[in-house]
Amino acid sequence: MSGFVFHVGANALCPHGGPVTTVSSNARVKVSGQPVATLTDTYLVTGCAFTVPTAKPQPCTTVQWLVPASRVRVGGQAVILQSSTAICQSAEQIPQGPPNIVATQTRVRGI
């Protein structure tokens, strides 16, 4: 599964429209002037609109990547690709669905 390399400045949304923010520990390898995202980075969701049930809302708060790049690594960690598989989770780690990668750089591809 190949795809463009995901990076800190790329746009991703949770299934309910909340933007995903990437907090990268990588400061060396960059694409489009932004650090490349890896499997061990932190992915936070803010502004998720999922508020059902009303007694105890479960909005998305984090993204857990399940299938990163198989051949591309940065600092020994697998890189996240536009085609990588992930799941958004609530604060209680309840699965909420996959994130949607809206825009990323289009120069560097990985496998």
Rank of each mutant, 00 (worst) to 15 (best):
V23N: 04
S25V: 03
V29C: 03
Q77S: 13
A55C: 06
P19R: 10
L44M: 10
V67L: 15
A78M: 02
T46H: 12
T61P: 00
Q77M: 08
V20E: 09
K56Q: 12
L13I: 03
M1S: 03
N11V: 14
P35W: 11
T51K: 11
Y43S: 02
C48G: 05
G47K: 04
S32F: 12
S32H: 12
A10I: 03
V67T: 15
R109C: 00
T62D: 15
V102K: 12
A12C: 07
P19L: 08
V23Q: 05
S24T: 12
V31Q: 07
Q82V: 01
T51V: 07
T22Y: 06
Q34M: 09
Q96Y: 08
Q82E: 12
P98N: 13
T40R: 15
Q77N: 14
L39G: 12
E92R: 05
Q96R: 15
G97W: 14
T62A: 15
I80D: 01
L66Y: 09
A12Y: 01
A27I: 05
T104G: 14
K56R: 10
I111E: 13
A91T: 06
P59F: 06
N11T: 11
K56N: 12
S70V: 13
I94G: 00
G97T: 13
T40W: 15
V5C: 00
A86R: 15
Q58T: 02
K30A: 07
H16C: 07
H16L: 05
A37H: 01
A37Q: 06
Q58L: 03
F50A: 03
P95G: 04
Q34G: 01
G97L: 11
A49S: 13
A78K: 09
G18E: 08
P53M: 01
T51N: 12
P19C: 09
P99G: 02
Q96M: 15
V63S: 03
H7Q: 08
I80W: 14
V8M: 04
V20T: 07
A10D: 11
R28S: 13
T42M: 11
R71L: 13
R107L: 03
A49R: 10
P19Q: 11
L44S: 09
C88V: 09
S70Q: 14
V72W: 01
S25P: 00
T61A: 11
A86D: 09
Q96W: 08
H7V: 00
V79I: 04
Q58C: 00
G97C: 15
I87C: 15
G76H: 09
A27C: 05
S25T: 07
S32C: 13
